[in-house]
Design a protein around this nucleic acid. Sequence first.
DNA 1: CGCGTGACTTGTA
DNA 2: TTACAAGCCACGC
Length: 128
Amino acid sequence: MSSYPAIYAVVRRIPPGRVATYGQVAALAGVSGQARLVGYALNALADTSSLPWHRVINAQGRVSPRAGEPGGSVLQRIRLEREGIEFDARGRVSLERFGWRPRGGAGQRPRAHGARRGRVGGSSPDGT
DNA sequence: CGCGTGACTTGTA
DNA sequence: TTACAAGCCACGC
């Protein structure tokens, strides 16, 4: 059973000009704590998909080097820049400004399928 | 069903 | 700031 569909759904919800972290997507997809699964899903998705996978970056605000596709991170950065996202001199994105802040309300899916240690960290400084 | 791997995360050095 | 270690869980063999 693959949680990919849920992940794809979340990624698809990421609005343009915004980026979400693997952990965030994982949480929204209902697999909180398994950021790896997100990357795994995206990898399985391949670049042929129409999903904005390029809007998914790691918690450090950096573009993770993909597996099997050297240079892919560069393509991702280019796509993000095209979306209007600015990169830092070190090639990092300011999650504080471009980080996607989903509006709880309706579209959210707090499906805690286990709720491991609540070490969320607190990366949701609403600012829109 | 067991083992290894992985587009990750967080804490510590 | 970078580097290393431990943890979590699904997928492929």
